[in-house]
């Protein structure tokens, strides 16, 4: 029987950087492979060690169970430790994730819409151009 497919992890926003590079004289440029840190692992580190949440809260944020979050977090720490000790480059990419975007509901035409360009805020409903809208949870 095929194993149960893994649950998609919710990530609130994509990381600012696509990776980190080591530097230093003793660094052997050859035969050091890079490490792929998954975006879900980046998110786990961000929630637990940057936002200082406990694993239960972080698991809630990523919409997975607490043991799963701990597994992701442990994998992330091991990868980062490997990169630090062996001077590997970290590349942040991949993973079973989806980005959580904010949803709005227009009070005039009752449609729901999201805002993919997070940088600039939304000013009007894309459908009827009404400026009356409210922030909602994802439409079911």
């Amino acid at each position: 029987m095929a194993p149960r497919p893994c649950r998609l992890r919710k990530v609130s926003k994509p990381p600012l950087i696509s990776g980190l590079k080591p530097y230093g004289d003793k660094l052997k440029k050859e035969n050091v492979s890079s490490i792929f840190l998954f975006i879900e692992e980046y998110e786990a580190i961000r929630l637990c060690d940057h936002e200082i949440m406990n694993h239960k809260q972080a698991a809630n944020m990523m919409d997975v169970s607490r043991p799963t979050l701990t597994r992701i977090y442990t994998a992330a720490r091991r990868k980062i430790a490997d990169a630090l000790v062996n001077g590997r480059q970290i590349i942040i990419e991949g993973g079973k994730i989806y980005f959580d975007s904010e949803w709005y509901q227009c009070s005039n035409c009752c449609c729901y819409f999201n805002n993919p360009g997070k940088m600039d805020g939304i000013k009007e409903c894309p459908l009827c151009r009404s400026s009356e809208f409210t922030n909602v949870q994802q439409p079911e």
Binding site: I97, Y98, P116
Partner: peptide, 25 residues
Amino acid sequence: ISGEFGIKVKSLFDSLKIQMIVIKE
């Protein structure tokens, strides 16, 4: 513009920076 988007579709559109509009009519 559609009535509903599945979970895979939502994440794809999010990463492509395409705006989704849901009309429940």
